[in-house]
Amino acid sequence: MKSVFKTVLAATAMTAMASAAQADGHGLGVSKIGLAVPNLQADFFNQIKLGVEGYAGRLGIEVVTVDAKGDTATQVSQVQDLITQGIDAFIYIPAGAAAAAVPTRLARAEGIPVINVDREPDGEPGDTVIYGENVNSAYEVCSHIIKLAGGSGKMFIIHGQKGTTPEVQRFEGCKRAIDENPGVELVAQQWTNFWSPDEGFSIAQNMIQAHPDVKMIFGQADGIAMGAAKAVEVAGLSDQVTVGGYDGDVAALESLAACDTPFVVTATQSTQAMGVLAVNSAIAVANDASVPARQIPNAVLTTCDNAQQFVDKHP
């Protein structure tokens, strides 16, 4: 059964590639890019979208963006529609915890280059995957708040959506920082479904209720962290608790630049740069140039001191 599928796949892919090659008469070899985004409500994905659209626009490439609103099934349908429109390259940011392999297969069957951003489905990698470095940057954020707390005390972690790559890796990095500091005690951790501020707020509030002597909170995304910081302020513990976030959302950077909340540190991902990288990779793959299987731009540790420069120009 499996081999039959492979043959079918290979055959369709070859014919499709042949026809794609014919269309490559002009310029870059790519005139239309499909971009599948999990959820534009999240600033991180919106930044990537802006990065892709801005850069592609300068190159004269048309970008068609679809938003799955967090639903895997919707995303599969949208990718079908993108392929129907005759895209030349496909930038795929999987939605949901189950990064579906099906969109990659669909695109592959048509010979369309697949550039994964942020995550990639198990067992069905694209031509390249671009994702923010998570482990080291999370280590740096957690080390920073541990240092501010004097190297010991109680800590909470509020995770992102359980089972997603960034959730797993950011925890891994932060755990390393905790393990290096025996005085730090991880007393509570909880998962959110949408990486959202309201979840961060209510989860942090409950945790503070249980452990009023907390000193550090790591929220795995800026939204979560800012929600948690608000909960700290409401509890009147602003002087006692420091909060670390992740991603470097626009709103988070502005908050850091103002530096008037317990939220004091984040790791700013080069989202716009990732968008540019994705477009360049798409052009390269379409022209049969080789690209690395993994491209991992670093995130930059951002505190109150250097936030303003990123507000002025997002990396």
């Binding site: 639903d71 099934a73 599969v76 189950a98 579906a100 392999a101 089972g163």
Partner: peptide
């Protein structure tokens, strides 16, 4: 079958 995967957050 369509997704070739199952996850508990689907179908919201």
């Amino acid at each position: 079958a369509r997704l070739d995967a199952v996850q508990p957050t689907i179908g919201i």
